[in-house]
Write a protein that binds this DNA or RNA. Structure first.
Lengths: 197, 197
DNA sequence: CTCCTTAACTAGACAGTGTCAAGTTAGAGT
DNA sequence: ACTCTAACTTGACACTGTCTAGTTAAGGAG
């Protein structure tokens, strides 16, 4: 049978999928190279041929997560008519992903600065492409509005900060884990932006 | 000399201080029980008598960080006259801490949900007290304003989400690490809240 | 002063982690 | 049929957190 092949064939993708499963099951701390390898049915050192270390595997998982993230936002956007409805829908998608994939969401937005240098160049490119696409989604939803403070990117910065902070503090927090009892709906705290004339 | 004493005397505090030093030097990943112990001049198993595991040590470090955090906000608030100036000052303190203690800030706001059960009861109490105090600082600055969307806690939720998201995305990010070239000043994206009548 | 109890700390071991070096095996190209 | 290369395995190493069993110091009771 083909499973006996020495060649796995799609090990790289299998490792990423295994990593996502592990993180969703047991939080970001549950991820380990060896467990990913075991779950993919290969030896503990096999991943080294596809990622130059666990940092790159993590980056690849982040890239994959950003793809799912963008997908979620696009799904929520579909069918929203007015600019306001579209912006709100994008934000709801943002929050829905954070709620549905708590561990992944938290993991994606770790600054993780000092490790960036270790990431494989192709993995890094992939990561930047997918995270850029996610932001693009948000930027497009902000485009119809008059820039906040008359500054290019002002609305994007405001909305992104607001929805990201809300997601971090209220959407991914354990129930009752915030000082604010029941936080208001996001729609109620998103300011009313005037349309461009 | 007293250093030869078997008894350290202030090991608990020394371990927390060592942990903070390690994190500020090498990021959240640089923290380890054994390195903390070594830095405090004790054996690798000594911390077990003060913390029931690394999770509780981490929680204690978070508690200490929240104390510094609150301190920073209070310092920035001093001398601010109008309600608007005070709210802005609190936010600037929030952001100043995030910039000055990048690793600590990121570490403090990890949801870390599934580990919460392992935290020592007294450490947990300490953590809740100090993080509660930090939020209190922000809540007081929001108090003079008309509640957003007429909802109790509405303004707090908006401001906290906004400043936290801004801190995460723009203050702690590596230079040039955000899709928005140069983000606007926080003062420009903080909405104008009407005062209570 | 002596004994005893208790808390603080040490020493050693264990399983698990990421990474490296060396071998092996499969599949494609000539 | 031969070789070459990439994919994978095996084994080792240092490091991690945690557990168990000693050891040592400090303080109280007789």
């Amino acid at each position: 049978m083909s499973k006996d092949k020495h060649h796995h064939g799609a090990l790289r993708e299998a490792l990423i999928a295994a990593g996502i499963e592990l993180m969703e099951a047991g939080g970001p701390a549950a991820l380990s190279l060896r467990k990913c390898a075991a779950r993919a049915g290969v030896s503990h050192a096999a991943p080294a041929h596809h990622f130059n270390g666990i940092v790159s595997l993590k980056a690849a998982i982040m890239a994959r997560s950003f793809r799912m993230f963008t997908e979620t936002m696009r799904t929520h956007r579909a069918g929203a008519g007015t600019p306001r409805a579209r912006l709100l829908a994008i934000c709801e998608g943002y929050l829905a992903f954070a709620r549905r994939h708590r561990a992944l969401f938290q993991f994606m937005f770790q600054p993780f600065a000092e490790d960036r240098a270790q990431i494989n160049a192709p993995v890094m490119a992939e990561l930047e492409a997918h995270s850029g696409a996610a932001f693009q989604e948000l930027a497009e939803a902000c485009a119809p509005f008059e820039p906040v403070a008359g500054q290019a990117g002002g609305t994007e910065a405001l909305v992104w900060s607001l929805v990201h902070g809300y997601a971090m503090l209220f959407a991914t927090a354990p129930e009752g884990g915030t000082p604010i009892g029941t936080p208001p709906d996001f729609a109620d705290i998103l300011p009313d932006f005037p349309l461009k004339k």
